[in-house]
Design a protein around this nucleic acid. Sequence first.
DNA 1: AAATAGTTTCAGATTGATCTGAAAGTTCAG
DNA 2: CTGAACTTTCAGATCAATCTGAAACTATTT
Lengths: 178, 178
Amino acid sequence: MPSALERSKALFIRRWGELSGYWGINRTMAELHALLYISAEPLCTDDIMAALQISRGNASMNIRQLVDWGLITRQHRKGDRKEYFAAETDVWEMFQCIVRERRRREVEPIIETIERCRKMAAEELETLSEAERQQAEIYGRRLNDLAEFLNAVNALLNALLSSGQPGIEMLKAILPPS
Amino acid sequence: MPSALERSKALFIRRWGELSGYWGINRTMAELHALLYISAEPLCTDDIMAALQISRGNASMNIRQLVDWGLITRQHRKGDRKEYFAAETDVWEMFQCIVRERRRREVEPIIETIERCRKMAAEELETLSEAERQQAEIYGRRLNDLAEFLNAVNALLNALLSSGQPGIEMLKAILPPS
DNA sequence: AAATAGTTTCAGATTGATCTGAAAGTTCAG
DNA sequence: CTGAACTTTCAGATCAATCTGAAACTATTT
């Protein structure tokens, strides 16, 4: 029978994994991250395979991705050829890694696409009938609204990312003086 | 050969759909939303099926979900038994719908789980060895940090959601006076 | 109350994402 | 250079999410 501590950790890992679906990352990657985040010591690949019951290949792939995101780092020990992995434990740093990656994958591409769509729709406008031209006008306005909003979001994210180390304090500062 | 306008719309819909993976919603739901967002007129189920090349069942399911999220609304026309659907076109309202739903699905459950994990880990502490107790201490600290951060995020989201109609202006106000 | 127009549901099919495990690759010590 | 220790890759297997389509259901008209 596992201890309450073990069960608590398992629950945390499972839940973090379940939420992964909403984050555009896969379950195993999220579980792996949770495992390292709550681990007192860096773990090696075999530790991870045993803890999450996954294959070596799967572990390797997901470790690599987490390293790419900047959420975990490789570590070495003197006189040991194995690699060990440790998670970033500063929550604010973690958050920045995630924001940076998601902005790159989501916000920027859609802004870029909207720009392309606007250019494309502007072509051939003169060849359209009156009714079609009205439709095009509405379409253009919708794209515009969205682009304006996304640019504001993007600027906000930039501000968050470049705000050095004020960390959680900055977030709190934004809040209404409750 | 479709007009530039058609191609532009198709591109926008496709791209919005591709990004859905990062949003925890499925591709069709995102495409359906994009289609309605850029449409000048409300569309009926058959229009949607034709535009996206999907089955009636699929259309029905995804329409329902979008209605649940509050991103589209049902509309009726005098002397017509069909239902028509229109997207919320105010970008700020749209954003609020999404934030509300995602907070409910992601932020709140993980905060709740962390609380449970903390309670669970606190049990049986006295039965642990010295080494284990140190591990438990670190684990508790990590959960703490995360909970603190998530509570700040949650409060920020609440502020955004309850901020009435200042809309994009508020977002901009947060930004550094560039 | 029967016919018609439209909507919803859900079992099974399809598709796409993820995982495995063995082979290939890499690094290092001797 | 060779072997040992470890890591990465990737073709095929597995699994989960999504989609289809036909039947069941609901609402409206005559």
